[in-house]
Design a binder for these strands. Structure first.
Lengths: 112, 112
DNA sequence: TTTTGATACCTAAATTTGTTAGGTATCAAT
DNA sequence: ATTGATACCTAACAAATTTAGGTATCAAAA
């Protein structure tokens, strides 16, 4: 049902932002959070998310703790100290990129 | 000198937007236009731009006319009728994606 | 005069990132 | 007993960008 173009290259930063806000989340929860925040306009594919999470762990930005809840496994992710630092700079960088893109998309002959 | 993260997947739409506004531009001119619009915060790599332009021509969204100006070749691109239609929808789609991303990046625990 | 910087085009190989297309398993509800 | 939601995952492929070059003209500076 989601038809919005996913903005490529932003997935890692979205994950860092979610964890920066919420402290601790598991993968499936992140996909739901994005759908709720964007009113189903954006959807993170699990096939994109899980490899991205694994890479962030490998790069030392995230750490995990696993729990079994209601008989189902949950793997919680949280920011490491390094991840905490990098999340802030990546979020700021993406915000600036968004602004640049916004300027381009809203410029025209009369105001440009 | 440019350190802003280029937002991947947006290049094609940026090109369509520039041509939608300006009617007719050549590649090198597009790279300059983006730098000017964004105050050097965003830079389109020529190695990304030219293949993207060629694909848009191949897909029937752009057409070209070549001229020699001051002894140097210029290849002007403009929207075809099909390109004109698609540019509008792609620009709108990217704007909506930008909004979704904006919501995510600016959400936090206090506001939901 | 020759080197540098700007203009103006281009490609090939490699990498990154996401998509497509699955897979397994538990639990609640029909 | 099957369906839908929860919850994790991988492999093969495709698309897009980056890296790292290349060619050539012209103007200005060394």
């Amino acid at each position: 049902m989601e038809q919005n173009t996913f903005i490529k290259g932003s997935l890692t930063t979205i994950v860092l932002k979610l964890l920066n806000d919420n402290g601790r989340m598991y993968g499936y929860e992140m996909t739901k959070a994005v759908r709720v925040l964007t009113a189903d306009k954006m959807d993170i594919a699990e096939a994109a998310l899980y490899p991205a999470l694994h890479k962030l762990v490998k790069d030392g930005l995230l750490e995990t703790t696993s729990e079994v809840v209601d008989g189902r496994m949950r793997k919680y992710y949280s920011l490491t100290r390094k991840g905490n630092k990098e999340s802030k700079s990546k979020i700021e960088a993406l915000k600036e990129s968004l602004q640049s893109l916004h300027i381009i998309l809203n410029s025209n002959l009369s105001n440009g």
